[in-house]
Design a protein around this nucleic acid. Structure first.
Length: 316
DNA sequence: ATGTGATTGTATGTTACCTCA
DNA sequence: ACTGAGGTAACATACAATCAC
């Protein structure tokens, strides 16, 4: 008996199921294959039907739905109705922005900020997420400092190491600050656009929300982590249900197999009887005393409702 | 107890610089 | 002297785990 279970990789359908009929993607949340008469099992749970993540790189659209258990991604936050009107910092400038000026009234975490950020933005823009900042901002210290680094010393001061020292200027270590609803909402919107930020986007967001770039960075890190956690929980729950379904199916098939074996045994019993004692009653098709062995097969078929593949079942 | 902002440690990738053939 | 390859340092970022408000 074969059993196939695939998690979300549309490129790798089960090879042994190639000949099975295809179903439409909206019909199927889960499918499994069993070698002994493959069956499809549908999962009607709407939560898993055809929803795609808004995260570009986490999209999991099942391209070959009938053959897979496709755990569709968790969609973190319902998009606000007004979201289409939001203007994220990296969107085009001529879009209207209901959030505009949002940051200006906010005091939370206010920094003597980021006059430098403007200029830094442009420099960071070109960069790849991983390396750009260190190169473009010239943050290197020690003997390797070059001219460029001196020129952007102001930027360096603003950004320092993105690690802990950020908050240490006032001596107090950990001051947890609560983001305002507006800030959170805006960050959520940004997260839907990009679950990771490049340096330019980070600076732009920081500027717009009057937060430190480090705070933006941390918020996104936490957001990714917690989204992942939630998705894992959803996946777990789903797999649990899949397991239960499979267990039931397995149980059912075992029972069926047992019945078939029993029938096979009874068939053999009739075949071993002396030929002269076997016959069929023409009216009721039941075994009576007769003289041919052919009759026994017909009789057995009649008794079992006609399982033509009887003889292929192993007797072990 | 829960949610969430912040910190820490680790892994990984990129670039500049240095050395050497 | 110039050049390309390889090694290394310095840095940024992502992530996981955890703390702490």
């Amino acid at each position: 008996m074969e059993l196939a279970l695939s998690l979300g990789d549309p490129s790798k359908p089960f090879s042994f199921l190639d000949k099975t009929a295809k179903l439409s993607s909206k019909d199927l949340g889960f499918c499994m294959g069993l070698g002994n008469g493959f069956k499809l099992q549908e999962n009607g749970d709407a939560a898993f039907e055809g929803k795609n993540s808004t995260d570009g790189d986490e999209k999991r659209v099942s391209s070959d739905p009938p053959l897979q258990l496709d755990l569709l991604p968790f969609s973190p936050v319902p998009r606000p109705q007004s979201s289409s009107q939001l203007r994220l910092p990296w969107l085009t400038d001529n879009q209207t922005d209901p959030w505009e000026g949002l940051g200006r009234g906010l005091d939370v975490n206010r920094l003597p900020l980021v006059a430098v950020a403007d200029e830094a933005e442009e420099k960071a823009a070109v960069s790849s997420p991983n390396s750009a900042v260190s190169m473009d901002f010239g943050i290197r210290k020690g003997s390797r400092r070059g001219k460029k680094e001196v020129e952007v010393e102001a930027v360096e001061t603003e950004r320092t190491s993105t690690r802990a020292s950020d908050d240490d200027d006032n001596g107090s270590t950990r001051k947890k600050l609560r983001l305002s609803k507006e800030q959170s909402a805006f960050l959520e919107e940004s997260f839907k656009e990009h679950s990771t930020l490049n340096p330019k986007q980070k600076l732009a967001l920081a500027k717009q929300l009057n937060l430190r770039p480090r705070q933006i960075e941390v918020w996104f890190q936490n957001r990714r982590a917690r989204t992942k956690l939630k998705q894992t929980e959803v996946d777990c729950e789903y797999l649990k249900r899949c397991c239960e379904t499979l267990a039931e199916e397995n149980k059912r098939l075992q029972k069926e197999l047992q019945e078939l074996r029993a029938l096979k045994t009874s068939q053999l019993f009739y075949m071993q009887l002396p030929a002269t004692t076997l016959t069929i009653c023409p009216s009721c098709e039941r075994v009576a005393t007769a003289s041919t062995t052919n009759a026994s097969a017909s009789t057995a078929d009649a008794k079992t409702g006609g399982y033509p593949f009887f003889s292929s079942i192993s007797n072990t």
